[in-house]
């Protein structure tokens, strides 16, 4: 406990580093996945390659991806940008499938009704498809956010500062409190983001609760 009290500054700093790695990755994964999912649903022949292709990314182990990616991107192996890119790809591996399935689950009758009302396909996407698919997409995004925050700690073994640094430092110097603090902070951060996502879902999509 003494160690934690004596190192609150460092823990706070690493928490911010961790947020700077994982939050942009979650956001980027979401923003990149939705258009891909739309494309996958519009052009049926592309669906399998897009959904399975991004899903295959999940088969690529995290640590090797953290190492192979900088070679492809030309960034340094200890560059935080590289960690953000790797985490984004992992998020997309889950999010593209989730978004594609959510959009696919919007009933055909509703879509036809909207088309009959004179909606353009662009207008229908924003005012019919997206609101109806939103709750299912949010469920996917919650999984992505939790796993991204947890996965971001792995980059610490490569020397990228994050809450994972508390694990590596703690292990090397034999400080149990450091590792414990890291585990607790990671879980707390995941819970807070999850809570924020649920709350924003309630605010932005009040219809989801009525249906459930």
């Amino acid at each position: 406990m003494d160690w934690i009290l004596a190192n609150t500054g460092r823990i706070a700093e690493l928490t911010l580093d961790h947020a700077a790695l994982s939050l942009p990755a979650v956001l980027a994964a979401f923003l990149l996945s939705v258009p891909l999912a739309v494309l996958a649903n519009r052009l049926r022949p592309l669906r399998e390659p897009i959904v399975s292709g991004t899903g295959l990314l999940y088969a690529v182990p995290s640590l090797p991806l953290f190492i192979v990616l900088p070679i492809i991107l030309g960034t340094g192996i200890r560059d935080p940008l590289n960690a953000v890119a790797a985490l984004t790809l992992f998020g997309m591996a889950l999010m593209v499938r989730s978004a594609a399935e959510a959009l696919d689950a919007v009933s055909a009758e509703v879509r036809l009704a909207a088309a009959a009302q004179g909606y353009s396909s662009w207008g229908r996407f924003w005012t019919v498809d997206l609101p109806l698919a939103g709750p299912a997409m949010l469920a996917g995004l919650r999984v992505v956010s939790v796993s991204t925050i947890s996965l971001a700690t792995v980059s610490a073994v490569l020397g990228v500062p994050s809450l994972g640094s508390l694990f590596t430092d703690g292990f090397q110097r034999g400080i149990m409190e450091s590792v414990l603090a890291g585990v607790v902070m990671t879980v707390v951060m995941a819970l807070i983001l999850d809570l924020l996502l649920v709350l924003s879902g309630r605010l932005l999509m009040p219809w989801a609760r009525r249906r459930a």
């Binding site: 947890s150 694990f167 590596t168 703690g170 590792v179 585990v183 879980v187």
Partner: peptide, 12 residues
């Protein structure tokens, strides 16, 4: 458990 970082459990 999904939120639990594996590296943390490992070092702990």
């Amino acid at each position: 458990v999904r939120a639990l970082p594996t590296l943390g459990v490992l070092t702990l």
